[in-house]
Nucleic acid binder design. Structure first.
Lengths: 372, 372
DNA sequence: CTGTTAGCGCATTCAA
DNA sequence: TTGAATGCGCTAACAG
């Protein structure tokens, strides 16, 4: 990036077709400013706009908010003044006055986990064009921290909260929802200020295991999630149910506890081998641990899917690019974020709330194969 | 954080957790009466606290901010009132008054890209305990959108901005920095309100290619990033320099343009094969495209690293769990986020700004091997 | 249609 | 030490 090459005649991409006041003051950067335009650094206030337009503050406010009809004449004057001063309403003042911050709080458990990021992507898209911004905080899988974070969000006067994979109790959620509406994943809640919805985890892993069984597998290992995690527990149940339906005896030696991270997937496989278990397929409670399992298998010289089949859960963005691409149960992460956000906005605006989350589905890629 | 007996320096509501202790920590989570508030849902105001404590609002404010000495007697009364009403200062009001929002804006280009998420992780950690929260927005690799987003952030009165991989010109950054301090990656800027720092991309890919050359490779393909991206261009230069230093002729047939995504990595490899290029190693401009390359190679039955060596750039969290684990150039993503944030906070607080970013380094894992 | 008058909740003068 | 005023910038009655 060179600094001097830009020809001044090439306004970057700013439309604000206002002419910069030639001299006036500042712009000490030594280049004609086509960007921030207004030129001065002192943030303009609505009152100044009113003054330079020769109208009252309320008139400016009315135009900004479309609160009442204003004569074209004055409107034009105000528009000009706004353009000239590059005015933008102070959101803190607006917020104080209106009692809403145009901000929603998002509670995740791990910023920088592809699981949450994909959901955040959906949130972000749903927020686009609404005027709302989001403040993202992390509870780090810890109820106490989660509560503290939610309190912080509340003090910031967020207009609503989205709680992703929260660890706090439903009662807590209900409590908080008395202050601000909350939409939460992983719960069944339906009040006018709190909404929770959950996916059928049991069904999801049932799908995965049934798929394996249909391929002829009978000795299927299962890598669980943390024992205190409900999603994890439900997925284990799905595994058990699928086994049962196929009259395959449940063998707890084939179940190894993981923690949803890659490393635990590796450890799980190692443990299975250390304890000499026989199995032809592995079902992991999430994709990340499937990745770890895959690597451990690779290290042991075991081929996937030729020697052992592997299936994950989540369908993270990276799962279609693993080697080989991972067969997994797709969670509609993006949609969850998008729909949760829309629902929250609906609640905030007193509109009808509608949620229809796409169901879980099995995505068969290349890590599973018929037993020989 | 926070010794809050006499040092008034850090008010915010971190104190609240301390204040709450007697009440809310003594009982178990989820017991309704101790969680969200004493009882009512109406957010308490400082005035109410003053009233129930029998003092003036200013006294409460003084205690909250440590602005002046207050008799122990009144202090106690106020503390009690705060605890009882579960009061937390309205940040919008505080913001309006003090002119700062205790919020910083982060501009990324792609929420839900592991590249940015890892950096955000660093940001998040650096913000911990400071009282600041962050609003994350995405410019989607588009200068116009980026400008719009920054304007939004400014209207929200963020106290500072961190710009990650921005597409706007340095001049624009300088302009914006007249309003709020900005720290940006990928630039060299040093003013009192704007700081930019960049990593040595050229050196990074030079490291990668030299590694390949040392392993005996001479026909090394290179998958670039988008042609309009500086980082990408610099990495290509590093590749060329390494080749030159080893007296290996540059062959532009071995250079294929990608876009930093997995799919382009696949396409690149396919293209190389379609055009019958001979090569024993592939250097990708980033990890994501290396993942794609890896998959394409797998599909073609070509082994990595036995038949072809592969090296990436970034060292994303997932790169140590690919099959096999990816040799790559590590960017200190987390550190970048953390350091940028600390620097921004320093600027905001008028403190000395210090930045020392760890250098790029080659992480040799299992996708590279000596030619036979 | 438009201007004037009050505050939103808080921090900060200024007196006392 | 403390309380009483005075806005921060904006919107929402309330009159014209």
């Amino acid at each position: 990036m060179s600094e001097n090459h830009d020809s001044p005649s090439n306004p970057h991409l700013n439309d604000m077709s206002t002419l910069d006041k030639p001299d006036s003051n500042s712009t000490k950067l030594g280049s004609p400013s086509t960007l921030a335009s207004g030129d001065n650094d002192a943030p303009t206030t609505l009152i100044e706009v009113a003054r330079t337009a020769g109208v009252s503050p309320s008139t400016v406010s009315r135009i900004l908010n479309g609160t009442a009809k204003v004569s074209d004449e004055k409107r034009q004057a105000v528009m000009d003044a706004i353009a000239k001063t590059n005015f933008a309403p102070n959101q803190m003042a607006q917020g104080l006055k209106k009692g809403k911050s145009m901000t929603i709080g998002i509670v995740v458990q791990d910023i920088s986990s592809p699981f949450f990021d994909e959901t955040l992507h959906g949130v972000d898209d749903a927020l686009k064009g609404t005027g709302y911004a989001s403040v993202i905080v992390s509870g780090h899988w810890n109820a106490a921290e989660e509560i503290e974070r939610i309190r912080l969000l509340l003090a910031r006067k967020v207009d609503g909260i989205i709680l992703l994979s929260g660890r706090i109790t439903d009662e807590s959620v209900l409590q908080f929802s008395q202050h601000r509406p909350i939409v939460s994943t992983g719960r069944d809640i339906h009040t006018d200020k709190a909404l929770g919805f959950k996916l059928d985890n049991e069904y999801g892993s049932w799908l995965a295991v049934r798929h394996l069984i249909e391929l002829g597998h009978r000795r299927i290992a299962f890598i669980t999630g943390p024992s205190n995690n409900c999603d994890a527990a439900e997925r284990l149940t799905g595994y058990q149910r699928a086994l049962q339906e196929a009259d395959i005896p449940f063998d707890d030696k084939l179940v190894v506890e993981g923690d949803f991270h890659e490393s635990s997937g590796m450890r799980a496989i190692n443990h299975l081998f250390d304890t000499q278990q026989q199995f032809t397929a592995v079902c992991a409670a999430n994709d990340l641990s499937a990745y770890g399992a895959r690597l451990s298998l690779y290290r042991k010289g075991i081929r996937v899917p030729e020697d052992i089949s592997l299936v994950g859960f989540d369908d993270l963005p990276g799962s279609s690019y693993t080697t080989p691409p991972l067969t997994t149960v797709k969670q509609p992460l993006y949609e969850i974020g998008r729909i949760a956000t829309k629902a929250l906005l609906n609640i905030i605006n007193g509109e009808v709330v509608e949620t229809s989350i796409p169901p879980l589905e099995l995505v068969v890629r290349e890590t599973t194969r018929r037993t020989r």
